[in-house]
């Protein structure tokens, strides 16, 4: 009697695509299946993963956040500047995360209190933060703080000795944030309210869900995750760059959609988003392994995958009725 709930179909498709890509890579390239490649995949895409978690909440609520890429670039350059001015790393991270939270709150407030379209507000946020990044520094800044040169490396957890493979700090962040996001989504009233608003805002109001509070909270959370993603990105890049991460919002949105979250809101899966991030990472790795393909193919592949999964959602959605 228990048939597969149609809302899980895209999620299963995601898992299958992920496994197929991985298996395909392993078959095509001898080193693809190595543990190191897989760990690198997690580590290199960790910052996208963190940002995508924020985007997941926004999209489940039926909104959109286009400011992700700029926010990461802004945070990275802010951290580089703060550390350059001899701030302690902990202080720099704390201030950065606080700013992320604050700017997210402002976006949420504009969207909720003044009923401005989310895309417009976050498009504004995208350009604002991009401009602000260039105000902080017109050029890329290398981070030479000892925390980055040594501590980040020593915080990696060794997995195997021969070959020597470690689980880097970035990947740890990805895993931890995914777990936290999953708990928020599945086990807090705030998280459940996000689903309710995305599915039917008018019903949510009548059912006594604090819609305003929740909506502003969602964007605040997304801002926080973007800032956190910026921190993680600096671990990986060892620098801050005002011109970086252009178009990253598509990667984030694509990961979310590939992970089975409905772009119209109401249905969404945090683990799905993590899989979506891994799928995009796999594609990038495949393109690297292939060797002679232009890196711009990654962008195109992200677009195509996003389109495919939206179409899948449409098909599943229309079958249900």
């Amino acid at each position: 009697m228990k048939k597969l709930d149609p809302k899980y179909i895209p999620l299963f498709a995601t898992a299958i695509v992920m496994l197929a890509l991985y298996a395909g890579g392993c078959l095509a390239y001898p080193n693809f299946g190595s543990l190191r490649v897989f760990i690198n995949l997690l580590g290199d895409n960790a910052f996208i993963g963190v940002a995508a978690m924020g985007a997941t909440f926004v999209i489940i609520s039926g909104g959109i956040d286009l400011s992700v890429g700029s926010a990461i670039a802004f945070t990275s350059i802010l951290i580089a500047q703060l550390l350059g001015h001899h701030w302690p790393p902990a202080g720099a991270f704390a201030l950065t995360l606080l700013i992320g939270l604050a700017y997210g709150t402002v976006q949420g407030a504009l969207i909720h209190l003044f009923a401005l379209p989310a895309f417009l507000v976050t498009l504004g946020g995208m350009f604002f933060l991009r401009g602000l990044s260039f105000v902080l520094s017109p050029e890329s800044l290398a981070i030479k703080h000892p925390f980055y040169l040594q501590t980040v490396r020593t915080m990696a957890i060794p997995i195997t000795q021969r070959p020597f493979v470690t689980f880097p700090l970035t990947a740890q962040c990805f895993v931890v944030v995914t777990i936290i996001a999953a708990i928020i989504a599945g086990y807090t009233r705030f998280g459940r309210n996000i689903y309710a608003i995305g599915s039917s805002e008018s019903s949510a109001i009548l059912m006594g869900v604090p819609v305003g509070q929740t909506k502003i909270g969602i964007y605040a959370l997304a801002g926080f995750f973007s800032a956190l993603s910026g921190c993680v990105a600096t671990f990986y890049m060892q620098s801050g760059n005002p011109a970086s991460f252009v178009g990253l919002e598509l990667d984030a949105i694509a990961s979310v959609a590939i992970g089975g979250t409905l772009l119209t809101g109401g249905v969404g899966f945090v683990p799905g988003t993590a899989m979506g991030v891994i799928i995009l990472g796999l594609i990038q790795t495949l393109i690297t392994f292939q060797g002679n393909l232009n890196s711009w193919w990654t962008r195109i592949a992200a677009g195509v995958l996003l389109l495919l999964f939206i179409t899948l959602q449409k098909v599943v959605g229309s079958k249900r009725h």
């Binding site: 807090t188 009233r189 309710a196 599915s199 019903s203 949510a204 009548l206 059912m207 869900v209 109401g266």
Partner: peptide
């Protein structure tokens, strides 16, 4: 019916005042 179509029956009954 003013409920949330995508959520489960149980959650619709308890939404906003879930046992925590």
């Amino acid at each position: 019916v003013n409920l949330i179509p995508h959520l489960s029956v149980a959650e619709n009954i308890c939404l906003g005042r879930q046992t925590t």
